[in-house]
Design a protein around this nucleic acid. Structure first.
Lengths: 142, 142
DNA sequence: GGTTATTATTTTGCACACAAAGTAAATATT
DNA sequence: AATATTTACTTTGTGTGCAAAATAATAACC
């Protein structure tokens, strides 16, 4: 083969692309029960961990795009999951606060089976830990 | 912590999501030189490997969404990268054929540095092979 | 203290992922 | 052979990723 680096089978990025799409797709059904999309679910997980943070903090924690975040938060506000409050100390900032409905959803989310969560029935715990470590290396890149 | 499975740090899927987005983002600049998006680049790689295949074959090889593929191929046709031909044996099928411009782009694509291609300056070859094997396990899932 | 630069967020425009519904042609059923 | 089913692909609508430009408020500078 003239250019082996152009073979799809040799491309880590294509495997990541497929794996990411596949897992998000597997989440779709359980998340529809909660009336959440996958990025909205990430926002919820960030807020369940720490409520009342700024949008900038949320962007850093979730790695969601800033432009998308505005739209996502607007939709989540419409669903009464959270509210967006001005920071009185610094009026450029917005603070995101969970509403009752958003907090309560946590218990339902915890019931999503781990098999669906990770979609790794073929994978041992050790392999999962290995995968996490390798993905962290990828995510350290600039 | 009440629900450790809801912690973002414990989520393989969130790491996959970040890693996939990051690598595709890293591809953006070199691909802009070729006037390609990342999914269009995947289609090109599939065709450079095997020209003259059907859309169904292309969908299987690339794991791109069917609805998106129609639009992607239309845009690539407009850029004279390929043409879409009816299969005379089975008129439901379409055969995708590279045009001259599409074939020639291969040499430019081969010049994209491996560091950008894989975005893994922190990663040894052995770790890359490990990651590939683990991602293949993920991609075996239903 | 007024101008400039930086930070935090929003807006806009394009491309794609996905589901669901639609179309057209081949195949299966009877 | 007429109907039904399946296959191959397209269309539509919503949500998101991304870059670039816009807005607004704070911080920095002279």
């Amino acid at each position: 083969m003239e250019y082996p680096q152009l073979k799809l089978d040799n491309q880590i990025c294509h495997r990541l692309y497929m794996a990411s799409n596949r897992i998000i797709r597997n989440y779709r059904d359980p998340l529809i029960q909660l009336d959440l999309t996958y990025p909205q679910y990430i926002v919820m997980m960030a807020l369940w961990e720490k409520d009342g943070i700024t949008i900038a903090d949320l962007l850093e924690k979730t790695a969601i795009d800033g432009g998308a975040m505005t739209q996502i938060l607007k939709k989540m506000t419409d669903k009464s999951l959270l509210s967006i409050v001005k920071d009185e100390n610094d009026k450029r900032k917005r603070i995101i606060k969970l509403e009752t409905h958003g907090s309560e959803l946590r218990h339902q989310a915890a019931a999503i089976p781990d098999k669906i969560r990770c979609s790794f029935s073929h994978m041992t715990d050790q392999e999962a830990q290995q995968l996490i470590a390798l993905l962290d290396k990828v995510n350290q890149e600039p």
